[in-house]
Nucleic acid binder design. Structure first.
Lengths: 137, 137
DNA sequence: GCTAAATATCATATTATCATGATAAATACA
DNA sequence: TGTATTTATCATGATAATATGATATTTAGC
């Protein structure tokens, strides 16, 4: 469903929501806890920082923290910059134009399902997932 | 949502459902009508044949046709062999084990959405999409 | 049998995703 | 001011998805 990259981003954000309470967390800690390649995660966290999801502090005793409280961060903000979510709902048959007025063959039926998914990512916050269950692998 | 490959498979199957009534259709016709790379489509149609979705006839005046009536062919049969659908519903956070009893952080909320999607592919037939709207690009 | 036309298969190229490794820049602290 | 630690960035490699091109195999019809 999500690309590896988007999945890593989500898991890292959830880790920060759960274990980061106010402190700065280093890439190394997250990478080890979640078993994600360290340098790869580094770039993902950097991207999330540019997106305004995280804040980073450089230098000794630096690290990453959430830019807002977990109940103010929506999943789409975290995974959107990677996978193909967030932008537009895209047509199941890959048409550039696919609307209620100019629908593809699958439009009416697929719309229901795709909208549900879009709403999930758009309206679910990190806070709602924290505590749902264990996060680490 | 779907990989290019799975999307091509679905569009080709819909084309056969709509324009293939009983006759044998050649790869070239489908490739041209749907603007899909010909040799690439050829392999996809061959895969669908192995899956039992299509029947192929070799040699002169050969081609492809649906193996069953459109109302007996479900989307999961068409796109399952490609993308990651059909097999198992997979965990949003990528855990190998993610069940109601050993859930990941997102399980409860994601399950609803993922189940909807699975049902869409499992219970929708080609016949239900034909005539929904224009198929070709 | 020969030829043309079609699927089946193999080999390779291209592109995007995923990942690793090395270096630069910034910062706390002694 | 120097050093250790950390993020930021650059360069490169590995793998999978996508696509192209060439050849083999099968079959209808002459």
């Amino acid at each position: 469903m999500l690309s590896h990259t988007a999945e890593y981003a989500l898991r890292a954000a959830l880790y920060l929501a759960e274990h980061g309470r106010g402190r700065l967390v280093q890439v190394g800690e997250i990478a080890e806890a979640l078993d994600i390649p360290r340098n790869y995660l580094s770039k993902i966290l950097h991207a999330l920082t540019r997106q305004g999801v995280l804040r980073s502090t450089r230098g000794k005793s630096g690290g990453f923290q959430l830019a807002r409280r977990p109940d103010g961060l929506y999943l789409v903000q975290v995974v959107g910059p990677f996978g193909s979510l967030g932008e537009k709902r895209h047509c199941l048959l890959g048409r550039a134009q696919c609307t209620d007025r100019a629908p593809c063959a699958a439009h009416a039926r697929w719309k229901e399902v795709a909208d549900r998914m879009a709403i999930f990512f758009r309206e679910t916050t990190l806070a709602e997932l924290v505590g749902g269950a264990v996060i680490a692998a």
